[in-house]
C-alpha cells in the first residue's frame, strides 16, 4: 500500500483535511473517504460527466482528477451547488422542466450547468448549452428538457 498524502482543501465551503492514497481519484475520495455520494461513477474515463465537480471555479471530471491535487483548492460538488442561489434555481428548473428521469446523470448535469451559468451568464443560449453539456451523457431524456432547464435557470428571475 502506498503511503497516504494528507491534503487540506475547501469542500462545499468547509475546510477539510483528509489522507488519501496518491493514486486515488477525487471521485473515489468524495464517495468513499468523505461519504458524499451525489457525485456519481458512471464510466471512470471522463466520457460521461456524471462525476462533474467544480474546482477553483472550473468544472472537471472528478474521476480523472487525482485526489492529492485537491490540496489547497476549492471543490464544489452537487451537494454544494444546490446550496447556492444559482444551484437552487437550477434544481427548481430541472424539476419543473422535466429534466430528470432516472436521475443518475442529473447531479453531473447540475454541476456542469452551474459552471456554464457562472462562466457565460445570460449569454448562455440553447446552442451554447448543448455544447456546454456535450461531455455529460444522458440515456433517458434526449437532452431537450435538460437544455430547457438550464436555459430557464440562466435567466435570473425578476
Amino acid at each position: 500500500m502506498s503511503p497516504k498524502v494528507e491534503i487540506s482543501f475547501t469542500l462545499n465551503g468547509t475546510e477539510r483535511t483528509v489522507a488519501v492514497a496518491p493514486d486515488m481519484s477525487t471521485l473515489a475520495m468524495l464517495r468513499e473517504v468523505i461519504g458524499l455520494t451525489g457525485t456519481k461513477y458512471a464510466c471512470g474515463e471522463g466520457e460521461c460527466g456524471a462525476c462533474t465537480v467544480i474546482v477553483d471555479g472550473l468544472s472537471l471530471n472528478s474521476c480523472l482528477m487525482f485526489a492529492a491535487d485537491c490540496d489547497g483548492r476549492s471543490v464544489t460538488t452537487v451537494e454544494g451547488v444546490v446550496d447556492t442561489p444559482v444551484g437552487e434555481r437550477l434544481r427548481d428548473a430541472f424539476v419543473q422542466a422535466g429534466a430528470v428521469q432516472c436521475g443518475f446523470c442529473t447531479p453531473g448535469m447540475m454541476v456542469q450547468a452551474k459552471h456554464l451559468i457562472d462562466s457565460l451568464g445570460a449569454s448562455l443560449d440553447r446552442e451554447a448549452i448543448k455544447r456546454g453539456i456535450e461531455g455529460n451523457l444522458c440515456r433517458c431524456t434526449g437532452y431537450v428538457k435538460i437544455v430547457d432547464a438550464i436555459a430557464a435557470a440562466a435567466q435570473p428571475k425578476e
Binding site: 452537487v78 424539476v95 422535466g98 430528470v100 436521475g103 442529473t106 447531479p107
Partner: peptide, 21 residues
C-alpha cells in the same frame, strides 16, 4: 397537465441513494 416528477427534487440535489451509494 405538466406535472413535475415526485422524485425529481432529490435526484437533482444528489440526495437520491442508488445501489452504488
Amino acid at each position: 397537465k405538466r406535472i413535475a416528477k415526485l422524485d425529481a427534487p432529490d435526484k437533482a440535489s444528489g440526495k437520491t441513494r442508488y445501489i452504488h451509494d
